[in-house]
Structure formats: C-alpha cells, structure tokens
Design a protein around this nucleic acid. Structure first.
Lengths: 338, 338
DNA sequence: TAAGATACTGCAATCGCTTGCATGTAGAAT
DNA sequence: ATTCTACATGCAAGCGATTGCAGTATCTTA
C-alpha cells in the first residue's frame, strides 16, 4: 500500500516551471513575481498539495517536532501539562511526540534515545522516579539537543527548568493540617532521587518548625516506585499507622490517590479519622471519600512555559548561556465540609 | 543549534569503505564479507551510530509511525487504550504520535490532516462526539492511508473496527439497577452521532423490556459535547431530577464522573439516594462518594487489537478486502457496600 | 589458457525539498 | 553604445540512506 500525494515536481511539470521556482513561490520569496506565485498557489490548492515534511526535515536537518517524556499520561498532572505543551507547540507549528517512562529508568532512557534518533528538535522531560544517572541526557545535550526539564528536575544540569513552588505548596498544606488541629503528621512521598521529593520535604519540615512540632524521620515514608505498585503503598501505610498519625501529607498525585485507596482497603475504620492533604491535580477530588485537602500545581501553565523556553532554545541563533528556572505557584484547595 | 550525529558517510570515511558497503554491512546483507561486517558493526557501535530515520523514511516512503486520535488523553479509558497501542507498536518498531480532538470536529480533522502530511503509515481513531462528516477520512483512505477505528466507529466505512460489547455492557448495568429495585431509570448519554450512543441505548432499552418496564424517551438525555462543559451536564441533571429517577445509567467515562459531580453540586441531598451505574475506566472508582456500579471496557486490549489490525493492513502486500469488526466484552463492577 | 563462477566492493541514482549561484531579459543611467 | 540595476527563473548540489548495476580480484573448470 502506498500513500499518494502530489509533489513539488508534479506542480512544476504541470505548470512548465522548475521545481525551484515552485518551491520559492510556495515559500513566498521575493525573487518570484506575484503572477507566478498566484499561479502556483492556485494550482497547489487545487491538487491539495502538502509539502512532504520528511523531505523538508531531511533538508533542513530539523523535524519541527518536540519530544515529551512523562512517567504516565494517565495522570492528571501530566495530562494537563501535555495540554499546555500542545497549546503552545501547535501555535508555533511544532508537533509533539509523547512517550511514557512508567517510572522506569530503563524505559526512560530507551524512549529518549528513540526520540533523539527520530530527529526531534528538542526535549521536554520530567524524570522518572528511578532515574539517578542522567549522563545519557548530558551527552545528548552536549551534542546539541535542547532540553528543558519540568516538575522533576535534576540538580546540576545547566539548562532551563520549570517547577512548581514545591516548598510553599508543601508548607501550606502541612500548615493547613496543623491549623486544623493535627499534631502527628506523617509524610508519604516519592523516591528520594527526585527534586520534588527534597523540596516538598523541606516545606513540610518548615511548617512543622514554625509551629514547634518536632520533626520525626520515622513519620516520613518514601516510595521508590512513586506508587506504581500498590504493594509498595500498602506497606508504607502499614508502617505508618502504628505511629498513630492524625494527619498525612502526601507529595504526589499518584501517591495521594493510591494512599487513600490503600487506607480504605487495609484499615477502613481509621481512613476517615486521619486528615489527608496531598498534591494532586485530579479534577475528581470533590468526589473522593474520604475527602482531602489538595495542592494543585499549575500544570497547564507549566507545560506552556516549558515549551516556550524550549522553542526559544531551538530557534536561538547562538548558543545560550543564561538559563532560567521558573517557579510557579501552587494552589491550596481546602477540604470540603460535608 | 545543530544536533550532531555520525552518519553512514562518516563511518565509510573512517573505515575507507564506500557508503553502500557500510549500509549493506549494517543491514547484514549477503554480499558483504563477515570480516567487513564485523569491522563496520564494531565501529558503528563505538561511535554510537543511529540510522537517521528521516532519511530512511524519505527513501522508503514510510515513517514507521502510526497516528492516534482520541478526544482526550486525560481520560482513563483513552489513556489505557493508548497504553495498549504502545505495547504492540513498540514491539513491532513503530512509533506512535498522539493527538487530541477535544471532542471537536474541526480539531479532529485538522489533526488527522496534520498527521497524514507527516507521513504516518496508518491511523487509529476514535471519532469525536461532534463528528458527522467523515468524508475527509474517506478521501485519505482512498489515497491509501490504512485506518482502523476503535470505540467510536462510523457506520458505513469498510475497514477494521474494534469496539466493546456496548449492548451487553449497557444491558448488564441497567439490569443490575433493576435487580436492586430501581424502577425509574434515567439514561444520560453522549451525542446521538456516536455509534456507542446508539448501541448503549439499545442495551438499556432491552434490559427495561426484559423486566417489563416501559421505556420513556424523556428519561434519556443526550450531551452533545460529551460532558466537556459542566454547564451541559448540570442542565441535563436539572431536567432529569423532576422526573424522580431512582437510578441513572450513564454511558461514558467523562459523563459518569461529570454527572456525579453535577449531582453533588446542584442537589447534594438527593445525590445519595439515586443509584448510579455508568461506563468508566477510572481506577479511582473505589474512592468515589456516592459510590457507583461501573462498566469497565477492556481498554488496554482494545488498543492492542486495533494496533495489530492496523499493522497488518500497513504491512499487507496486496489490498485488503475482508474486514473485521472485533467486539470485546465489558466487565461489570458492582457497587461496594459501605 | 581462456572462460566462467564466486565473492566483495563502489558508483551513482533516487526519495522530495531547499537554496547558492548562474543566467537571461528589460529598462534606466551614463 | 555601453554599463548598471532590478527582476524572474533555472541548474544543480545536497540532506542521509538504500540499492541496481558494474567493476575487480580470486578461484574453478574445461
């Protein structure tokens, strides 16, 4: 099966022009007379001509597409980020190619390298929870692949980054729990590798400190796989409950929903007694039972900002030396009274 | 900024061979001596050579990528389908490019045409709720673009299709409501254009008929935009409530969550009195309050089957004349006692 | 010894598009 | 009449990989 379309050559032949003239007419170059342009444009329209982007990519050595790596698209936060990315990319005539790491380092590396070999012009990436070694990214970056990190960013990698104000988001959520009378506040969080894990832990600690509540390391549980495995979560919950927490602050979308699920499953009787505050961009929070206080990240905006930065890198005439880390504010959505 | 990689030419120069020899060695052709092959392979490995897929696509007139159109990736059903698609596609060395129609016909058409011009080898599509005119798809299909429809399929379009057993899924859900004592069962559903809407309505009617409950058209509410706008849903709920339904059967993922949300928002006092059964692939159903009975579609499997069919079309030596419509069974997950 | 078989390797065209350079024409300026 | 400028168009190379055909070297076989 072959997919047939007309080429610049067909147009040239039909109009008795050379391919160069046609190409230039289509690109509206000054060398071509208005008359010829009209002729070409009209004919191109008639045969529904579409430039072959593959050929153009080969010639111009760029593909007008940008790669995205997230852990899961079935995650409210990431799918909202992707919507933000698309909204900007399509306006600027870029295409996006989405890949999922499923929180696996191996998968992430494979996907990135696959994308890179498919001539993406730039990469937007949120690291997987397993990722520690980012040398493969450094090497691609050194070869000239523009990269912008968002949400989960590496520590020492000089490029643009876009993150939420994780410290403040965590601080606010924890403070909210404290102000509603909770004193034994557990913290369920992601892999220690992640930037967001560290920042959110700091916010949590700071809120405790402000109200003179002692920080107890045993109240912090890390989930290596970011809640991808329910066993991991149930284990964490099982270890936390004997410490009698009256509140839990949870640091990611998947963990938040997963933790409530685990609580309900393993200890339904206490599920309603523990106040929960967590990061989540789910638009179904209002339906949850037990209900919770959520920290919403500006996901859509994050995607937009990251994409703008990436495109600016891609289209930069000369190497960029000044990099920004944009920090966007989160929003605290307090638990509904019921 | 330019992204530098080594080409076949570089290898040829370094090894004092011609590009054709290198190309043939890499593709393990019989004309090349074992010795030369080893040499080339070793060097290619050393410089981390990756064939430029753009160049290969141009030469071979195919891109090894397949396009996907869904209404929203932020939808459990679709994101699971996508995971199924990926699982097969990557195994067969295809890449996937995902686009969202956001339930808009215009957007859908735009995206499909964009994808087609980017030389996708085939298309997997679930129609938007607005879509009525599929001539643009017919024309691409006629030009040789393989297309497989899933979930939301058009009526008269001769190609492979993969759908859930919507009739049975709806029948089971409605029957379940009846067996739990409900008698005034409303039906909240998608745009009338969609195949799934018709099939699910039939299942609903059949269940009513089986128990000699009269079908009342006024108990059926259509949402043109598939629940993309909350106003639309709230309006539907507002019109339904005066009819005093004791059960509602809802026919799509987004509508199901949206409807519960609308109920809670506009009429919290009755929200718990109405039994709800609906299609949804959300993995958070257990958290919902009020809880509900859900019809789960075999989303992952649907993606897999559709992809296998599509790839078989793409790789077919001669035009295909026999088309299949695969029907996959749904699963009824009954409401949890609380 | 000549001719054929076998094993390797390279030349060059091709996919569709872009673009530097050369060419050609007409009118204006010297 | 000669030179210059402006405008319009075409030639051909090149992006990276694939592949039909041709060429060379070595070895068989009659």
């Amino acid at each position: 099966m072959r997919f047939e379309t007309s080429t610049i050559k067909d147009i040239a032949k039909a109009l008795g022009l050379s391919t160069s003239t046609v190409s230039r007419a289509l690109r509206d170059r000054y060398e071509i007379s208005e008359e010829t342009k009209k002729l070409v444009l009209a004919y191109a329209e008639k045969v529904n001509y579409r430039a072959n982007p593959i050929a153009r990519s080969l010639k111009e050595r760029r593909s007008y597409s940008i790669g995205i790596i997230v852990s899961e698209i079935a995650n409210n936060f990431f799918s909202q980020v992707i919507n933000g990315i698309e909204s900007i990319a399509y306006d600027r005539d870029y295409h996006v190619i989405i890949s999922q790491s499923h929180e696996s380092y191996k998968q992430e590396k494979l996907n990135v390298e696959h994308l890179a070999s498919r001539s993406i012009d730039g990469l937007l990436i949120a690291l997987s929870s397993e990722t520690q070694d980012i040398d493969y990214l450094r090497s691609l970056y050194a070869k000239g692949l523009p990269i912008v990190f968002f949400d989960r960013v590496p520590k020492d990698f000089e490029t643009h980054k876009v993150i939420a104000n994780n410290f403040k988001g965590s601080f606010d959520a924890t403070e909210h729990l404290i102000l509603s009378g909770k004193r034994i506040i557990a913290h369920l969080t992601n892999s220690e590798n992640l930037s967001i894990t560290k920042e959110r832990l700091e916010g949590y600690k700071a809120a405790l400190a402000k109200y003179h509540i002692e920080f107890k390391p045993e109240l912090v549980k890390y989930c290596q796989h970011g809640g991808m495995h329910s066993a991991e979560l149930e284990q964490a919950v099982k270890e936390l409950l004997p410490l009698n927490p009256d509140g839990i602050f949870i640091s990611s979308d998947r963990l938040t929903t997963g933790c409530i699920m685990a609580l309900k499953k393993t200890n339904p009787e206490v599920a309603h007694k523990i106040a929960i505050a967590g990061f989540t961009n789910s638009n179904l929070v209002e339906l949850f039972n037990p209900s919770l206080t959520s920290v919403k990240q500006p996901a859509f905006e994050m995607g937009q900002v990251a994409t703008e930065l990436l495109i600016s890198m891609i289209e930069a005439k000369r190497p960029i030396t000044e990099f920004e880390t944009k920090v966007l504010d989160t929003e605290l959505v307090k638990m509904q009274k019921r």
